[in-house]
Design a protein around this nucleic acid. Sequence first.
DNA 1: TTGATACGGTATCGACTCGAAACCATTATT
DNA 2: AATAATGGTTTCGAGTCGATACCGTATCAA
Lengths: 201, 201
Amino acid sequence: MDKSPQVLLELVERLGNLMRAEFRRAGADEQLQPVHVHALVYLARANRYSNTPQAMAEYLGLTKGTMSQSLLLLDRRGLIERYQDDLDRRVVRLRLSASGDQFLNEGQPQLAWQQATRNISPNRIRNAVSALRETLTTFQSDNEGQPFGACHGCRHFERLSARAYRCGLMGDRLSGPETRRICWLYEEKGSGTETDDDDEE
Amino acid sequence: MDKSPQVLLELVERLGNLMRAEFRRAGADEQLQPVHVHALVYLARANRYSNTPQAMAEYLGLTKGTMSQSLLLLDRRGLIERYQDDLDRRVVRLRLSASGDQFLNEGQPQLAWQQATRNISPNRIRNAVSALRETLTTFQSDNEGQPFGACHGCRHFERLSARAYRCGLMGDRLSGPETRRICWLYEEKGSGTETDDDDEE
DNA sequence: TTGATACGGTATCGACTCGAAACCATTATT
DNA sequence: AATAATGGTTTCGAGTCGATACCGTATCAA
């Protein structure tokens, strides 16, 4: 009988709590709750398909009603901007405002974490990352959750040329940096389905 | 520039969120918030020095006022019992009630996690544990947080004989199982900051 | 064209969180 | 004995959060 998974859970939870507390501290100046800070961090990393209230709610594990409330607050504080999608006028799109951007750059909510990992070798970190990533994938496929990944590794990702990419699902061309952002349309490659892109790297 | 620490943070956060959502689900029947479930889980794992509101607040990262509220609720629901310490009459001690115990056994809030780690080899889990543990230690010493560990590895831990142990700080003899519970008096053994991570069992 | 229905988002409600600060006993210090 | 420190509780106000109802837009079926 191995208790390691149990211990791992405890650690993830504990570190999660601490980061939450860190987010709380980072947001204290601006009167923000941890979840607001988290929302801003997400927004800074989300790609063009994923900057909607819906995707955000999914990512943060909230209902759309709750999300709407938080966004209202962030808007009032002037940290985000909302604008309408011109293709589907039901859809609201979000972006960081200048001061939202500034807040993330100055507050550095993730700095404490960077510090905390300073003594650990890159190799051990990579190993931990791979184990946790696998855990996350399993967890999500167990629970029907949205995957939320970046293009690399996504079934819809297509490479047109050395520096040109495309999302096969949405049909848009993507810039290099954009392929590294978080996308809620992400789907794991492989899994025995026929893929039309066989040019992998 | 390595982005792995950043990714690790993202994963820990995301998994933390998911466990939080899991706790939410587990507590839904009993009308409990995630933090309540977490409190019960903690209580089930805390040793005799750590079953107080104060230790709990420290562990969960809440203020004592907030903790007091949550404990009130758990008491109303009959999931915990409070009793006075007879040495220091300011101190309140906590224990799971029968139904609190039952709740944990039936709800199995940690089961989903156990499942999610099923495909990962014990060895990789242990490595991840060791990396995260080190991160936690560094984080806590950066931020003056209480360490919260089990006897094994604690500076105050003394082994009297093959199966008899003692806490040098409090002077009590400890049973074998008790040495494996969470203690908020925990202090890292070696005085140096470098920790050896070969303490796996 | 005209419904019916689905969907993205907002508004409202009530129970609860959470930090801050005031407060109350009890213990420690002097 | 007076004072300070300590463990917990209470109170307050802004905010979270799920549930539900609701609004406008898009989609689908006749």
